[in-house]
């Protein structure tokens, strides 16, 4: 008898026939397991949702309390039986509450990575490599040109620019869930003790991080009257706000942007960024490769991003590899710009 299929890609997302659930589905489904709160993975309108408490909280903050019919909390490391299939959530190191989901039918073990990174992050628990038969990885930065530098060095660039241009406001674009708070924490680690100013679109999630015990120091929301006075200050905002009407009132603003995409100069130039900071919440090429080896998987599936390059590499080390090209992921930024507009 052939192995029953444990997980299979469908237009709605990864589906488990035995357990009758989807993981990070891109359309409304009766039962969804959610890896983390970014809008491309966590959508409203499902029947029941199983996710970490923090992911559920973030979904409620973004979509309202009625984002689904019923919800269930998954604790890191605790096995949960879903229609006879055992699922376990493990930290993914991506954003607060983010998880990999391990699916096991007693014979085969598959780990769905969700989005993940390996670099240390003061705002969320670190990624744990899980041994499995099939590893289903993201591949946002899966080209060997993406090697993220030490994030402390990148923050150093921001602080030296502030020292050189004390008369200019430094607008720091960062995705409002995760990256913004991580940047605040990194700036604090680097010794910045002035208040950090934030755009309204970053406020809700930042407050939530603080309530969850992440120490970010003094945070102030920018009002229209503050804007002309913020020379020499750091202002966190969604990436799209840098080029928005909103940015005009700041004194001679320096446009900074914290993102893995800033590694490629043409990308930074295209967005009019003056101070690109290469800080990413996704694994870079070396970390993707290292992680795949650590899982000791014999088969690699790649969900979204530069799937062909990663699959090619995996085949050169003897793994069976297949790019799934799932549609609907990787547009966290789009989601962030929607927020900024709202």
């Amino acid at each position: 008898m052939a192995d029953p299929i444990l997980l299979t890609p469908t237009p709605a997302g990864l589906y488990c026939p035995a357990g009758d659930f989807y993981i990070d589905p891109v359309r409304a489904t009766p039962r969804a397991l959610i890896t983390h709160g970014h809008a491309d993975h966590a959508r409203a309108g499902h029947g029941s949702v199983l996710a970490t408490r923090q992911t559920l909280d973030i979904m409620a903050l973004r979509y309202g309390e009625n984002f689904c019919e019923t919800r269930q909390i998954a604790k890191y490391g605790e096995g949960i039986n879903v229609n006879g299939v055992e699922v376990t959530f493990h930290p993914a190191g991506h954003v607060l509450g983010s998880a990999q989901i391990c699916v096991c039918d007693g014979k085969k073990r598959i780990v769905v990575s969700g989005d993940y990174k390996r670099e240390q992050d003061p705002t969320c628990p670190p990624f744990e490599p899980i041994r499995c038969d099939i590893f289903i990885s993201e591949a946002t930065f899966a080209l060997p040109v993406f090697r993220h530098p030490d994030s402390r060095r990148e923050v150093g660039k921001l602080l030296s620019s502030l020292a050189l241009f004390p008369e200019r406001a430094h607008l720091l674009g960062a995705y409002s869930l995760g990256k913004a708070q991580r940047m605040m924490a990194l700036v604090r680690e680097a010794g910045w003790d002035k208040p950090i100013w934030i755009h309204g679109a970053v406020e809700k999630i930042t407050d939530y991080y603080i309530r969850e015990g992440v120490d970010l120091g003094e945070i102030r929301k920018v009002t229209a009257a503050d804007r002309p006075k913020l020379a020499g200050e750091i202002v966190l905002c969604p990436p799209s706000a840098i080029q928005d009407l909103w940015s005009r009132k700041f004194p001679d603003p320096v446009a900074a942007f914290a993102s893995g995409w800033m590694r490629v100069r043409a990308r930074a130039r295209q967005r009019g960024v003056e101070l690109p900071l290469i800080v990413s919440d996704h694994a870079d090429w070396d970390d993707l490769c290292a992680t795949i080896r650590e899982t000791q998987c014999s088969e690699l599936w790649v969900t979204h991003g530069e799937a062909d390059a990663l699959a090619h590499w995996a085949s050169t080390i003897g793994l069976r590899a297949k790019p799934l090209h799932l549609v609907g992921y990787g547009d966290e930024e789009e989601a962030a710009s929607d927020e900024a507009a709202a």
Binding site: L143, P144, V145, R147, R263, V264, R265, A266, A309
Partner: peptide
């Protein structure tokens, strides 16, 4: 120093030889 397939994909993505090589250069 690099796999030709990965180099080609990278160069195609970055679009500039010096920058591609600088980024791709193995540590």
């Amino acid at each position: 120093r690099t796999d030709p397939v990965l180099f080609a994909m990278s160069y195609d993505y970055v679009g500039d030889l010096s920058e591609t090589v600088a980024l791709l250069w193995p540590a």
